[in-house]
């Protein structure tokens, strides 16, 4: 569409808060967004799963984390939903059994939810304008990946009998490092490069659903 955006500056508060008279509701665009995020996560996640595998969908450098965390920061619950669903597809392509992928859902959901929640709760600017924004993102990435890293090898892989107790730390560090390193590489750049545009589009989600 022609000339839809200009350089009018929005503050971090304004980004997350509804303006007087502003109406936002769930619409077809969010359904489309969910599908596209699953699609892009599928491809990007599969790239990580195939290129840097540790096994059972755990990777040394998992690019899918960028879609999970950036997607949820921009698109709220739709990003969290997509983050929970797409590893299912990307893991399938890389040979992870169906039910193992299914059991990863809580880890993937939390990994996406926490940064999205932190940005909304602390009113951080997704364009990463200040050190505070960077720190909030980094902290959310670390905490959420730590949860994923503890949950998945301990609950899922151990639960399915795929790992011995002694090899669990390798997978915990693999999951954690694979997510945090890839997150540092991609999340900062994606947020910095595209947030300025995304926050002005109708698909951007201020609260959780719209």
């Amino acid at each position: 569409m022609e000339n839809q955006l200009n350089q009018e500056e929005l503050t971090a508060e304004q980004i997350w808060e509804l303006q007087p008279g502003e109406k936002r509701s769930v619409g077809v665009i969010h359904i489309v967004l969910l599908a596209l995020l699953i699609g892009i996560g599928f491809v990007v996640g599969a790239f990580g799963s195939i290129s840097f595998p540790l096994g059972f969908g755990v990777n040394f450098f998992w690019t899918g984390i960028a879609v999970q965390q950036v997607g949820a920061i921009w698109f709220g619950a739709w990003g969290v939903l997509a983050a929970s669903i797409f590893p299912f597809f990307s893991n399938a392509i890389s040979g992870t059994p169906f039910y193992v992928s299914l059991a990863y859902i809580p880890a993937n959901a939390v990994q996406a939810f926490l940064p999205a929640w932190a940005f909304r709760y602390y009113k951080a600017d997704p364009r990463l304008k200040s050190t505070r924004d960077y720190l909030i993102l980094l902290a959310a990435m670390i905490v959420s990946s730590a949860f994923g890293a503890l949950y998945s090898p301990l609950v899922v892989l151990k639960g399915f009998g795929l790992l011995t107790a002694e090899s669990v730390p390798l997978f915990i560090w693999g999951w954690f490092g694979g997510n945090v390193v890839a997150g540092i590489v991609f999340n900062f750049i994606l947020l910095k490069a595209l947030s300025g545009v995304v926050i002005r589009t109708p698909s951007f989600v201020k609260k959780w659903w719209a």
Binding site: E2, Q4, N6, R200
Partner: peptide
Amino acid sequence: RYLYSPNPA
């Protein structure tokens, strides 16, 4: 006029 756009489309 699109929101954030200075001129009408």
